[in-house]
Design a protein around this nucleic acid. Structure first.
Lengths: 208, 208, 208, 208
DNA sequence: AATGAATGAGTATTCATTCAT
DNA sequence: CATGAATGAATACTCATTCAT
């Protein structure tokens, strides 16, 4: 049923205060989740790390899971914001596609830890909430797909859809397999190779 | 320190019985983990679902985490076994590469649920154990990379390494993004497109 | 490492409340330990007997053993306090020695139950803690020994040391052998005889 | 209700075997109780240390407490046997009294560990059983009292009774306060001083 | 709004005891 | 007689959540 962070009910009325306190909470929680994951982090720890008491924590959320939602939502917002600002720069073009993808991989490098938290904990949300959060990713994938399709002529549409998904997952892969990949590549090298692989692959697909 | 399922200590001495009971345990646990994840599953539920009492459960393991290890190890073993049997069929060749990859995607389709469990819970293992379990995947990726390199001439080695990883992750993606992908594609279609994308991409990389 | 009751960590910050709740706990625990001993008493029983919930119990201690420590420490404090107040009354003299010993035996009569608890359970503490608790007894024995030595001339020092220990142990004996001794003697009679035996014995030792 | 070790019910009929197995059991149990006490020792450990299986253990006892009874009974038997053999040597005489007491203190030195086990765990027995076991001590004290009374003329009887008890408790004290006493004295020195103190004290009591 | 003491349902784990083989 | 696998009641301890101040 929760479809928005504004639907997480708070006893406090002052909207600015809610924003401020929830931000403290998110920052504190992310720090802890990075270290020990959602399940192993207690609400008391979150309160303490956020700089207020357990009582205050519960003035701004209803259940522990709400913190997870706020964290996931916050991270996705960060990703989305940077992704969309990269998207908006120029008109569709081959160069622009590459630039957007490159900036997305860079983004994944910058936010590695957050990405790890996000995809390790997202299953802890209930279905409804998870869907809401994942919609953001779906939208981004769709935007990328559209950009690709409008930058190149005669593409196989199914393949383009899959490539858009591949690119996103390869970004996560940079975080999740860092113990392997980051030994061999810098993020720039990794981005170059993946961009080449994806676009070469796509351009040489025979259109169905 | 645990480096092998044989190092999970059991009070019971009969090796065959251990194998049998642990198998019951793994099957029961997987059923539950699929539904509610490791953390939300209690040891009592595992015992019950396995068909024995809580006391008996603890005759065959030491700690709840041992169940998770057994489950992860079992799933990886299943994947590895099928993957390796596909690898062994023929000499390296373009056709063989495609066949191996295709059978890997098929495998991911067959074992979707297990793959979800595996990658959602693996972080619950301690570092040592996680490393041990992940080595299996690392080995498979390396085998695939080698097969690719020996089936085509003049490949960019870095790109081949990344493609091998991509293929594996795209397999997981089939499970994790099924709500998107499986609406649009059958596993055969998905496999075809990914194989094309990956190999076209790789073959058109200029060798460094 | 625990060297003081102040080092038993409590989640609660209000020092007065800690004191109050721990006191409830000690009183409740003593009642139960008298009846069934430390091992056979559950933490839930302690909580209930203390008048609060199991959760609250654990706000004021970390482990069940902490309750035992608090109880032992409390009992020894009670003994020590009364013993020392008897010691401080007068300057060393034959009469004073007798009065102190007599009041000690009286004390053992008053605190029989506590003494039983103390010496039956003290071995349940870990070494460090046990040492800390026993130091109080060691100090009291040393004080008595000093008082004896300074009240009589030409005493055999080794014998005086042993007499001081004997007196303390005879106090415990009054509690532990009550089913025998308290059938035949009042505490006053017992004290008279023991005082006579001890001092006569000591005074007639030939100094080495 | 249990009034004798023969009343501990065994499923096994062969009396010699019962004796043999129970002896293994007692030896194993004492070793473990010395180290970790009765409560912290599991029946499985007792079985293992005794050289047989948990199933076999329960062929020779009914409940864990039976082991404790057998152990306490065995230790008391040992003490009693040696004490009584010392008692029987000569006719009552001053020298004989001293010799008996001396040999008792020596006995306490020899059996320190067992004495510690005995008096730390005896409270774990139920009332009936404890009474049965303690009767042995009561008898020994009475024998010593009688010996003392018949070796000296004109003794204060109450004082003699108390001295007999004192001597026994001073024997235990040698074990329980060894960390203090055994730093300063050998058992011979300790025995000499205690004998002197006790007998001097007693002989200088004015008869009531 | 903020605090933190109180609550008690929930959970992993242990261990005495039984009983079929 | 001996074995050891199976049992499940029991228990210490945790932690999300509430609510009086």
């Amino acid at each position: 049923m929760v479809m928005d962070k504004n639907q997480i009910i708070s006893s406090v009325k002052d909207e600015d205060l809610i924003k401020k306190r929830r931000n403290q909470m998110i920052q504190g929680a992310i720090r802890l989740f990075k270290e020990k994951g959602f399940h192993r982090t207690t609400t008391r720890e979150i309160a303490k790390e956020s700089g207020f008491s357990i009582g205050t924590l519960y003035e701004y959320i209803r259940k522990k899971e709400d913190v997870l939602f706020l964290v996931c939502d916050y991270i996705y917002d960060g990703v989305q914001e940077r992704f969309e600002s990269a998207m908006k720069l120029d008109a569709p073009s081959k160069e622009n596609v590459e630039a957007v993808i490159r900036s997305y991989y860079q983004l994944m490098d910058d936010m590695q830890e957050e990405i790890l938290v996000l995809y390790q904990e997202i299953k802890g949300l209930n279905k409804e909430t998870r869907k809401y959060v994942l919609k953001k990713e779906k939208d981004m994938v769709a935007m990328l797909e559209k950009l690709i399709l409008s930058s190149y002529a005669n593409l196989d549409e199914a393949a383009a859809a899959i490539v858009a998904n591949n690119i996103f997952v390869q970004g996560h892969m940079w975080a999740f397999r860092r113990w392997i990949l980051q030994k061999s590549f810098t993020i720039e090298e990794y981005a170059n190779i993946q961009i080449n692989l994806n676009l070469n692959g796509l351009l040489h697909m025979k259109k169905n």
